[in-house]
C-alpha cells in the first residue's frame, strides 16, 4: 500500500493521513460507540418496565431510530466522501462522520493551515500542514466533549445559575458567533482566486435552491441533502472552468 515515507514538506499527505495508527484510532472510536450502545441498551431494557415500556417497544424504538437515521446518514456520507481527497479516510470517518461535522472540521483545519501560512489542498498543503490541521480539528472537537462531560452533571443537579443565564445571551451569542465565523471564512475564500469565488457562489446558490425547494415543494430531504449536493455541484463547476 503506502510506503510510510514521512517528509514534512511533501505534498503527498498519504503516508501520514493513512498512517496505521490513525486507522487504529478510527476503529477504536467506533468500538467505544458500540460499547456505549451495548451498555446503554442493557440499562434501558432493564429499566423499561418501570416506565410502562415493553421490551418490544424498546427494540421497536431502536429500529425506528435506525430507520429515521438512514436519510441523514446517507447525506452525511455524501459530504464525507467529498472530503476524502482532503483529509483521507481515517480522519474523515472519525471527525466528519462521527464526532465532528463537516463545517467545523473544515473550518478548524483551514484556520490551522493559515497559521502555517498555508492553504488546505493547494501546493502548500504538506504532510506537516495536514498533521497540524488534523490535530487542531480534533483538539477543537475535544472541547465539545469536555464541556459536555463537565456541564452535564452540573445541569443534572438542576443548577439554577446555568439555566437562568439570560435567554438573550443563549440566543444572541451562538447566532452571532456562528454567522461571524462562517461569513469571515467564506469572505476569506473570495480573496484566493476567481475560481474560488465562483465555487463559493455556486455552492451558496445550490444550497439556497435546495432550502427553497424543500420549503415550497414540501420535500424536507432536499434540505438534508443540500450540503452534499451543493459541494458536488460547486466542485463540478470548479472542475469545468479549470479543465481546459
Amino acid at each position: 500500500m503506502h510506503s510510510f515515507a514521512v517528509d514534512p514538506g511533501s505534498t503527498d499527505i498519504s503516508p501520514v493521513s493513512f498512517h496505521p495508527v490513525l486507522w487504529i484510532c478510527a476503529a477504536a472510536v467506533f468500538a467505544v460507540i458500540v460499547l456505549q450502545s451495548v451498555i446503554y441498551l442493557r440499562a434501558i431494557r432493564k429499566a423499561a418496565s418501570s416506565v410502562d415500556l415493553t421490551d418490544g417497544q424498546v427494540m421497536g424504538s431502536v429500529r425506528r431510530g435506525g430507520i429515521a437515521a438512514i436519510g441523514p446518514s446517507l447525506a452525511v456520507a455524501l459530504v464525507a466522501v467529498s472530503l476524502l481527497p482532503l483529509f483521507s479516510t481515517p480522519a474523515v470517518l472519525t471527525r466528519i462522520g462521527l464526532v465532528g461535522s463537516a463545517a467545523f472540521d473544515v473550518a478548524a483545519a483551514g484556520l490551522a493551515a493559515q497559521s502555517q501560512g498555508a492553504q488546505l489542498g493547494g501546493p502548500t498543503y504538506t504532510q506537516k500542514v495536514f498533521a497540524i490541521g488534523f490535530a487542531a480539528m480534533t483538539l477543537g472537537g475535544l472541547v465539545w466533549m469536555l464541556t459536555a462531560l463537565i456541564l452535564t452533571p452540573i445541569l443534572a443537579k438542576g443548577d439554577k445559575t446555568l439555566r437562568k443565564v439570560n435567554p438573550a445571551v443563549m440566543t444572541v451569542v451562538p447566532t452571532a458567533a456562528i454567522l461571524a465565523a462562517f461569513m469571515t471564512l467564506a469572505f476569506t475564500e473570495t480573496t484566493k482566486s476567481g475560481v474560488h469565488v465562483l465555487t463559493l457562489l455556486v455552492s451558496a446558490g445550490v444550497m439556497g435552491l435546495c432550502i427553497a425547494g424543500a420549503k415550497y415543494f414540501k420535500k424536507p430531504w432536499l434540505r438534508e441533502w443540500g450540503l452534499g449536493i451543493a459541494i458536488f455541484v460547486a466542485l463540478a463547476a470548479a472542475f469545468l472552468v479549470t479543465a481546459k
Binding site: 482532503l86 455556486v202 443540500g226
Partner: peptide, 23 residues
C-alpha cells in the same frame, strides 16, 4: 487536485447559507 483545492469554498458557501436560513 481540483476537489482538494476548492473544497473549502464549496463547503463554506453552502454552510453560510444554511446558517443564515436556520438562524
Amino acid at each position: 487536485a481540483v476537489a482538494r483545492l476548492y473544497i473549502l469554498s464549496a463547503v463554506f458557501g453552502a454552510v453560510t447559507v444554511q446558517a443564515v436560513v436556520s438562524m
